[in-house]
Nucleic acid binder design. Structure first.
Lengths: 186, 186, 186, 186
DNA sequence: GCTTAAGCGAGACGGTACGTCGAGTCTTTCT
DNA sequence: AGAAAGACTCGACGTACCGTCTCGCTTAAGC
């Protein structure tokens, strides 16, 4: 039942129904379900959307474990692919919608965002221990330096293509730095 | 008139009215204005919000022009301060709300996001010409590498404080790279 | 507008829609009117029905004034004809429905029942003064003795025909009494 | 079981629960019974109410048999007392409610109204045979002339008290007639 | 005594209507 | 002409019941 409803919502989103027209009544009608059945499980539109997001979330990426650099590439690859899912643009809107309610947002944050962030920090911690990362760096900041560029692409320019090698490019460039070699040598 | 309406909306937001309760009817009531007067100027809730955002946007940052690095710090400082504005959390929601409508979003994008991005690219282009930036780097990517970390902080962890020196830290770290010196040498 | 709604309800009733299916939503749909428009005028189903009843009420009967007996016949004729209106059976149900809410009932009572009763009492008072009625009789009781038999026919046996001369028969019989002449003489 | 449900309904009515709030769900909840148990016995709200009415109906009046007049008084006394039952006002509403469904109404009519009416006609027939009633009178009409005044009091003016001697007064007055003696002589 | 089926409470289900609210349109009245 | 005011249609909100249905659980009879 829950499954049917969640899938109904995703089907509607994929069919291009604008999020603003996604009323509970319409979801119920589409799923062939009474409104009460929805309200019995979710207390409102937002809670329902958290679950839709959770259901659409790709599985945790598999980390090769060969090096910090490779793990980071895998993590960013997962982010990139997430941005490529056909329904991505719409899911981003759902995500956006969620931010309107602090309660909802923190539920989503705890369930999805935080675990992914912890995973990144783990990788970085290991990398720092193994000497792949500058020792004096703040790990939180480092994490944002990898995740941020990928997210800004996915969120602010979703029309874009998020090309194949993007994850590698970002990881390597961030590790390397942008300063010209000559200036590094100086 | 327009001024009064926009200010009315901002006053409501500052007073902690949740965005979801910001109906046109309420805006009209608060501003002591007929609904038709609002609809005469904006075609709907979203278009109105674009203008609210535009009005709340801080002025373009002043670039010192002493170096690319200093200009970048100034740009990021402006972003950081933006995230500190008292009403920021709520404006973020407005921003989020806007993404629900592609039409609205692209209006906002063209009016606010894009100019800021162009400004950043200019700075980077100048820096690359002046040898402050690796010559082989994609400027779009470089821009995202500066902007992304700041944004990811402001959006995903808005409870945080966005401390004073953050802009400098990010700019310097991104320029420098994260790889330990020894490994760079290898 | 009010007119259109009331007439819509009556049309539905005449078309044989059972009272139980007369939801506000259906009335609105039929009248091509928003629900709010109905709720702006009536606070609920019952208040609306009071007005439907009032609108369907036949005009006050014209009293010939030639004698108390003739006036009474005219009053009862009006009652009888009321029971004959094509939609009578259904209006009776509306009437019945109204009794479920004391508030509604007393509104209807004050607007419709009481004036009619006062009219009857007037006629009787005049008749008593003119010697057409026993001097020792309670006028309230007398009124019920005329009205009661007609009502009991209309309400409890609505399938019946309520034949033409019924009003005269009742008035004359009640005035005359049922005791056989011989026993009157004794 | 049935007993428990019927008594539950009556208890609720006595406790002043307005009829409109007497949902099957509430009855079930109150009686500590599943909804299905009710639907297994009655096909809906109305059928249940018929049985509630039947159960609340006072026993058939005992006719003294000393004379038609005394029997009629006994019959009307029973009607009067019925109107005095503490829950009468509410039962009247149930009765009213029932009229909304012709099917239900005719069931109630057959089970309760008609037997009572037949009893009255019997008494009148006997009285006519024994010379206590005018020979030329329509018995149906005569019956309504006794029952009507009492009912009109009970139904239209339920706030009233229906005083002790009312039955006798009505019977005697109807038998006697309302015309002044002098005019009878003329 | 053991089982099997009927009847039970509980309550989920697809629906419909409730009464409220906001969207966006339109009309009326005033300035 | 443009504004405030507010009524209008439409449709979603979240709640309550409808009448149907499926669950386990109790309990009584039939073996």
């Amino acid at each position: 039942m829950e499954r049917a409803i969640l899938e109904g919502v995703m089907k509607l989103l994929e069919d291009g129904v604008p999020l603003a027209e996604l009323s509970i009544e319409r979801v119920a009608r589409t799923a062939g379900v009474g409104k009460a059945t929805i309200y019995r499980r979710w207390s409102g539109k937002e809670e329902l959307f958290v679950d839709v997001m959770r259901a659409a979330e790709p599985p945790d990426p598999v980390l090769p474990g060969t090096s910090m650099r490779d793990d980071l590439v895998a993590l960013l690859e997962s982010l990139r692919r997430r941005g490529l899912v056909s329904r991505s643009a719409i899911l981003h809107n759902v995500y956006a919608q969620m931010k309107s309610s602090p309660r909802i947002w923190s539920a989503y944050h705890a369930a999805v965002v935080e675990p992914r962030r912890a995973l990144g920090l783990d990788v970085l911690r290991r990398g720092q221990r193994d000497g792949e990362l500058r020792a004096d760096i703040d790990l939180e900041l480092a994490n944002d330096m990898f995740v941020g560029p990928m997210l800004v692409r996915a969120v602010l320019r979703p029309e874009g293509e998020l090309p194949e090698g993007l994850a590698e490019t970002i990881v390597d460039t961030v590790l390397e730095g942008l300063r010209p070699v000559s200036s590094t040598a100086s």
